[in-house]
Simulated scan of single mutants.
Amino acid sequence: MHSSLIAWIMRAIPFGTIIMYGALGETVTEKSGNLNLGVPGIMYLGGFAGFASAWAYENSAANPNGFVSILIALSCAILASMAGGLIYAFLTISLRANQNVTGLALTTFGMGVANFFGVFILNGASYSAAPIANKAFSAKIPVLSGLGDIGQVVFSYGFLVYAAILLAVVLHWFLTRTRAGLNLRAVGENPATADAAGINVTLYKYLSTCIGAGICGIGGLYYVLDYNQGIWATTGQIEALGWLAVALVIFTTWKPLNAIWGAYLFGMLYWLYQFLPSLLGITMASHITDLVQMLPYVVTIIVLIVVSMRKKKENQPPAHLGLAYFREER
Rank of each mutant, 00 (worst) to 15 (best):
H2Q: 15
N115R: 12
G198E: 09
V246S: 00
I301W: 04
A12G: 06
I9C: 12
Y222E: 06
G212C: 09
A62E: 14
K312G: 12
A97M: 12
G217I: 01
L166V: 15
A197W: 13
L122G: 05
V143C: 11
I165N: 06
A240N: 14
F326I: 12
N100I: 15
R11L: 15
N59F: 12
L37I: 07
T17Q: 05
P277T: 06
E314F: 10
I218Q: 00
A133E: 07
K140F: 10
G242C: 02
V161G: 00
T17E: 06
N123F: 09
V170G: 05
Q229S: 14
T17F: 08
M111C: 05
G230M: 00
L74D: 01
L276Q: 08
L104I: 15
A163S: 07
L74H: 02
V307N: 10
N228I: 01
A180G: 07
M284Y: 08
E30Q: 14
F137L: 01
L279N: 04
A80W: 02
V303T: 04
L91P: 00
F51H: 02
V68L: 12
G220W: 00
I18R: 01
G236N: 13
M20P: 03
Y204R: 02
V249D: 00
I72F: 11
T209L: 12
T300C: 05
S308Q: 14
F109N: 06
M10G: 09
A129M: 11
A12E: 03
Q237V: 15
A259R: 00
F326V: 11
V154H: 03
W254G: 04
G181C: 06
